[in-house]
C-alpha cells in the first residue's frame, strides 16, 4: 500500500499537525518508504495467532477506588502557557 499527498494531508489533519505543501510532498515520500519496508509483514502466516496485548503475562493489579491525589490546582496549572485563577485558557470554542 502507498499513500498520496492528499492522504498525507488528511492524516496530518487527524494528527493536528499543520504541514506546508513542501512538507506534505516530502512526507509522502518518507511515509511510502516506511510503508514499503513494513509490507514484508504480509509474508508472515498469522492465521490463528493471538495479537499481543501484554508482553509480560501478569494479572493486572487493582487498587481501591479511592482518591489518592488531587486538590492541588496550583501544581496542575503551573506549567500552562496561559492560565487564570487555576483555569486553562484556550481560544473561544463556543459562540
Amino acid at each position: 500500500m502507498s499513500v498520496d499527498t492528499a492522504t498525507v494531508r488528511r492524516v496530518a489533519r487527524l494528527a493536528r499537525i499543520k504541514v506546508t505543501d513542501d512538507e506534505a510532498a516530502r512526507m509522502t515520500n518518507e511515509l511510502n518508504s516506511i510503508l514499503g519496508f513494513v509490507e514484508q509483514l504480509n509474508e508472515v502466516d498469522v492465521a490463528g495467532v493471538e495479537p499481543m496485548t501484554s508482553v509480560v503475562s501478569l494479572k493486572m493489579r487493582r487498587r481501591q477506588d479511592v482518591v489518592t491525589d488531587g486538590e492541588d490546582a496550583e501544581a496542575v496549572t503551573a506549567n500552562a502557557p496561559v492560565s487564570e485563577d487555576h483555569f486553562f485558557l484556550v481560544p473561544k470554542v463556543v459562540e
Binding site: N42, V44, V46, V49, P51, M52, T53
Partner: peptide, 9 residues
C-alpha cells in the same frame, strides 16, 4: 493488528 500478531510470534 497484524503487527501485534507478529509480535506474539
Amino acid at each position: 493488528l497484524r503487527a501485534q500478531k507478529v509480535r506474539t510470534l
